[in-house]
């Protein structure tokens, strides 16, 4: 029972983790992309379709990443090149993604899906508890952790990360020092899109290997909240994602156990938890201020 819960927590947390770490990079560059949900659902439908057509989960995942990046490119072009309002554009991107994915996915409703293969290491994978939890996951779970470590390393240990943080903190100064604010932000937005696409593919190829319209069910929004929850620090995203993953899973189990709580209340728990945590986090003003990208959501127009 415990093992089963733990395993489902991991699968529930992984898409949140991946989408959030991508959005964290986007926000660190000073762009607020509220279209995570839209990019994720596009990743989910494209990943499912391509895997279904080719029979290859890997191709499906790659296609999902490209789809997420494609959506991000639309967002980037509008927000960075045409300097549209970031909030409105992000919301529009989500609505677009939900609509287009429904259209693409129509043919795939009820079609049996393809599950990503799980890792198998002789001996290790057969250990009780540790085996299934640590050595029997699919590649995307490991990739998620690798991404967090990579983002943390790049952000705080490399010049690339320094430039990215600088652009997010003060785009005027970064421009005055000769950095291309727009270019850095395009790259960050594309990275975020790729991650959201990957997270979407995980939904339709591992979490529930099938296509259901609107199957991301608000996970993109939780990923956005997670970035704030983590106060823009990568490793905290893991803690946040697993906390939210656990809450999601517990609601299922509580329902299965027939605990006398209305299911609507239980399924609203992750969102209530998000709000509670946001309130708690914002109490620590100093930490939030130092890590919050000061230019978040502000449009940049070079005066040349």
């Amino acid at each position: 029972m415990f093992e089963a819960v733990l395993l489902t927590v991991i699968t529930a947390a992984t898409p949140l983790l991946i989408a959030a770490i991508g959005e964290l990079v986007v926000e660190r560059s000073g762009v607020l992309n509220l279209g995570v949900e839209g990019m994720m659902i596009m990743g989910a439908v494209v990943g499912f379709a391509v895997a279904n057509q080719t029979g290859s989960g890997t191709l499906g995942v790659l296609a999902a990443i490209v789809a997420g990046m494609g959506m991000a490119l639309i967002f980037g072009f509008l927000v960075l090149s045409l300097v549209t309002n970031q909030v409105a554009t992000g919301l529009a991107l989500t609505i677009l993604g939900l609509g287009v994915s429904g259209m693409i996915g129509e043919a795939y409703i009820g079609v049996p899906g393809l599950r990503l293969p799980e890792l198998y290491i002789p001996v290790l994978s057969e250990l009780p508890l540790i085996g299934p939890v640590f050595f029997q996951q699919d590649a995307v779970v490991y990739l998620g952790f690798a991404l967090v470590a990579l983002v943390a390393f790049v952000l705080f240990r490399t010049r690339t990360g320094l430039i990215l943080r600088a652009v997010g903190d003060n785009h005027g100064s970064a421009h005055a020092l000769g950095y291309s604010v727009i270019k850095v932000r395009y790259l960050a937005v594309l990275f975020g899109g790729g991650c959201a696409g990957l997270a979407g593919a995980y939904m339709s190829l591992a979490y529930t290997p099938q296509w259901v319209e609107n199957m991301t069910a608000g996970r993109g929004w939780i990923a956005l909240a997670l970035v704030v929850f983590a106060s823009w620090l990568p490793f905290r995203v893991i803690a946040g994602a697993y906390l939210f993953g656990a809450v999601t899973v517990l609601t299922f189990h509580a329902q299965a156990q027939g605990i006398g709580v209305p299911s609507q209340l239980l399924s609203s728990l992750p969102y209530i938890a998000t709000i509670a945590v946001l309130v708690l986090i914002s109490a620590n003003r100093r930490l939030t201020l130092v890590n919050t990208p000061a230019c978040l959501g502000k449009p940049f127009v070079p005066d040349r």
Binding site: R159, L162, I163, R165, A166, D169, N170, G172, S173, A174, A176, L177, G178, Y179, V290, N291, T292, P293, A294
Partner: peptide, 30 residues
């Protein structure tokens, strides 16, 4: 500005062009 700096022209701004969330050494490295 990068070209100006390559020539040997530096500038100290009136409204500082510093990054508040970064350390002194990170600001200079940039």
């Amino acid at each position: 500005p990068a070209a100006a700096r390559a020539l040997g022209i530096g500038m100290v701004f009136q409204h500082f062009s510093l990054f508040e969330a970064l350390t002194v050494v990170e600001n200079i490295a940039l």
